[in-house]
Simulated scan of single mutants.
Amino acid sequence: MLQELKEAYGFIFEDELIEEINSVGKLQFKAQGKKIIEIGEYVKMMPLLIEGAIKIMREDKDGDELLLYFLERGDTCAMTLSCCLGQTKSEIRAVAERDTKLILIPIEKMEEWISKYKSWRDFVFASYQARLTEMLDTIDTIAFMNMDQRLMKYLEDKAKINQNEIIAVTHQQIAYDLHTSRVVISRLLKKLELDGKIKLQRNSIEIMAL
């Protein structure tokens, strides 16, 4: 675990902090599609992403999901930080976008390191800023983009996160993530294919110009 920590976070944290994370952190593996954090749970450990990708979602009063943002290697979730430090229930759902390896940090260490290590404090503040920017981007996308533009941005983001122009995803899953109907997504995907931007395959989509 130590070598993986150094590769993912060595350019951010000093050696002493890396050693502490290695000694108190719990290594965990989540297969693609598995939940990492559920809405309504108390979050007692903060995740540091070592490998893979995680998608963060909110849920409305009707139980419909909305994708907020993705996390990649070297990231953590600011909303998880808030829940940990405030000891409140999670308002987000975190799901492994692909096979994911993460290290879980106990709450008490998070608080201790904020005063002990400048690099950790800077990392926490930078994480808040990055996630806030991503959520504002999500709001702008919903408010100002047409659904076909939102769909294309979603596909491009998903391809970049998965590092593959071919995305294994169903029309229904896209509809869930974008908070719309499968019929609308299927129609727009067909239009994007006719425009030469994507190529539809069985349960997958190829992005033609990433």
Rank of each mutant, 00 (worst) to 15 (best):
E7H: 08
G10L: 03
F11A: 11
E14S: 08
D15R: 12
E16W: 02
L17E: 02
L17S: 06
E19K: 15
E19T: 10
E20A: 02
E20W: 05
I21F: 09
N22H: 14
K26V: 13
K26S: 13
Q28C: 12
F29A: 12
K30L: 10
A31E: 14
Q32K: 15
Q32C: 08
G33Q: 04
K34P: 00
K35E: 12
I37R: 08
I37M: 05
E38V: 08
E38W: 07
M46A: 14
L48G: 00
L49V: 14
G52R: 03
I56E: 01
M57H: 07
D60F: 08
D62R: 10
D62H: 07
G63W: 06
G63A: 08
G63F: 06
L66E: 13
L68Q: 03
L68K: 02
F70M: 07
L71R: 03
E72T: 13
R73W: 03
D75C: 05
T76F: 09
C77W: 03
A78C: 03
A78D: 02
T80E: 14
T80W: 04
L81F: 11
S82A: 14
L85H: 07
L85W: 11
K89N: 10
I92E: 03
R93W: 05
A94E: 15
A96Q: 00
R98P: 00
R98E: 14
D99Q: 10
D99Y: 06
L102I: 10
I103W: 01
L104R: 03
P106L: 05
K109Y: 14
M110Y: 03
E111D: 13
W113L: 03
I114G: 01
K116R: 15
Y117I: 00
Y117T: 00
W120K: 00
R121T: 08
F123M: 01
V124P: 05
A126F: 06
A126S: 14
A130P: 00
R131T: 12
R131F: 06
R131D: 13
T133F: 05
E134R: 08
E134Y: 01
M135T: 11
M135G: 00
T138V: 05
T138Y: 01
F144R: 11
M147D: 10
Q149R: 10
Q149P: 02
Q149W: 01
L151D: 02
M152K: 09
L155V: 05
L155S: 04
A159W: 02
A159R: 06
K160E: 13
N164M: 03
T170H: 01
Y176Q: 15
Y176F: 11
D177K: 02
L178P: 01
T180S: 12
R182V: 08
R182G: 02
V183T: 12
V184A: 13
I185M: 05
S186H: 06
E193M: 08
L194A: 14
K199M: 13
Q201G: 15
Q201F: 13
R202K: 13
R202Q: 12
N203V: 08
S204I: 05
M208E: 11
L210S: 10
